[in-house]
């Protein structure tokens, strides 16, 4: 058993419009190696690692955070459409004004004492997850003159194996900054749109919060000529 390699939607490591990649992206092509149990196994037991689930980012402090309350829900699947159960998704984001709680974020938009912007959820048996947060604001960054990141939520997933590790960003529909953002643009069209959540009235709750749907698709399992039989276990 091994896991699929990346598909046509994968971005390159070097994308010069995103300036930091110029001195940080490897210039050698990645080396294709056989997958062993190292790549096809992965950690579990989230409470022992990151800590228990933290699915409501709006109730972590004494008061209610500023901004538009939203629900984000969906499924974690593999690329064959199979649910990925009991896997952790870690979440972090800026507040409604586009400010991170991080000390190195120098933008002068206000902090919100009632909002940290970090959480984590674990998928159920059908791969479903759900969290509540506020919609993050766009924020400026130093990549080029008048550069602004589209509003986004950072997502981190381990999936079932070392090979399925994924960190991505969730974007919001109809955000005009997406099409000129060098980080989102590292992903070629039409695959870039895989990172754009769908506004969904069936997730939206009356008099409470707007709802967005976002599925995360991890690499699938495949039989390949690289497969290595390991008779020791």
């Amino acid at each position: 058993m091994s896991y699929a390699r990346e598909d046509a939607g994968a971005p390159p490591s070097l994308f010069p419009d995103y300036g930091s990649t110029r001195t940080r992206a490897p210039l050698q092509p990645p080396l294709r190696v056989p997958q062993t149990r190292t790549e096809t196994t992965g950690p579990a037991g989230w409470d022992r690692l990151m800590g228990p689930s933290l699915a409501d980012l709006t109730t972590q402090h004494g008061g209610v955070p500023q901004g538009q309350r939203i629900i984000v829900t969906g499924r974690v699947l593999d690329e064959d459409g199979r649910a990925v159960p009991d896997t952790v998704m870690e979440i972090w984001q800026a507040n409604a004004a586009g400010r991170y709680i991080h000390g190195k974020d120098q933008w002068d938009a206000p902090h919100d004492p009632n909002f940290t912007g970090a959480g984590r959820v674990v998928t159920d048996a059908e791969g479903r997850y759900r969290f509540v947060t506020v919609r993050p604001g766009a924020y400026p960054w130093g990549n080029h003159r008048n550069a602004w990141r589209p509003a986004h939520i950072h997502l981190s997933l381990l999936g079932p194996a070392f090979a399925t590790r994924l960190v991505t960003q969730l974007y919001f529909p109809d955000d005009p900054l997406i099409e000129i953002d060098p980080i989102a643009n590292a992903v070629p069209m039409p695959y870039r749109q895989r990172m754009v959540a769908r506004f969904d009235m069936d997730v939206t709750e009356p008099n409470w919060a707007l709802g967005y749907r976002f599925d995360v698709v991890l690499k699938g399992r495949e039989q390949t000529p690289f497969e290595e039989d390991d008779h020791d276990h």
Partner: peptide
């Protein structure tokens, strides 16, 4: 468009 969710920087 169903397929692997693309990677983005942390």
């Amino acid at each position: 468009l169903f397929g692997q969710t693309p990677s983005q920087t942390v």
